[in-house]
Amino acid sequence: MLKTLYTIASIGIVSEPVPPTDVSLRLREALQSEILDVLGRALCIRHVDAGSCNGCELEIHALNNPIYNLEGQGIRFVASPRHADLLLVTGPVSVNMAEALRRTYDATPDPKLVVAVGDCGCTGGIFGENYASLGRVSNVIPVDVVVPGCPPSPEQLMQGILTAIST
C-alpha cells in the first residue's frame, strides 16, 4: 500500500492542456445550440468499432491515460449507447457490422452527435468499398465531425471531440 501511495505521490499530476477546436472538421451544423443546451461540456461517449483494424482503438485508449486525461474535461466513455451523447465510430463499416451500427445509433437518445474516426471512418481508407465493406461511416449513419489520420493522434481525436461540442 505504501509503495502504491508513494508511486502516486512521486509521479504527481502529468495531464497536459487540451488542443483548440477546429471547425473545418465539422461536416454539418446539426442543432448545435440545442445540443449544447442539453450537454454543456459534460459529455458521454460510446465507442463503436464498425470494422477497424484496431489501430484507431490504440489511440482512443490513450485518451484515457493520465497525460491526455479526457475525463478531466468532463468527457467519459460509457458502456451503453443509451447513456451516450456522442458516438465515436471507427473503421470502414463492414457489411457484417452495418446492422449493429444502425441499431446503436437508433438506441442513442436525441440530440446526438457522431464523430467518424480515422481515414477509414472518413473515406473508407485503404479498405474502401467492396463485397464486405460499405466504406465511410457517413454511408451508413449521419456524421457530424470527421477526424482523419491512420491512426489519428490523441490530440487530433480530442480536437475532433471538442469541435463536435463547440459553438
Binding site: G51, S94, F127, N130, Y131
Partner: peptide, 8 residues
C-alpha cells in the same frame, strides 16, 4: 463482424 474483404 469486422470481415472487410482484406484478401480480396
Amino acid at each position: 463482424y469486422v470481415h472487410k474483404g482484406i484478401e480480396w
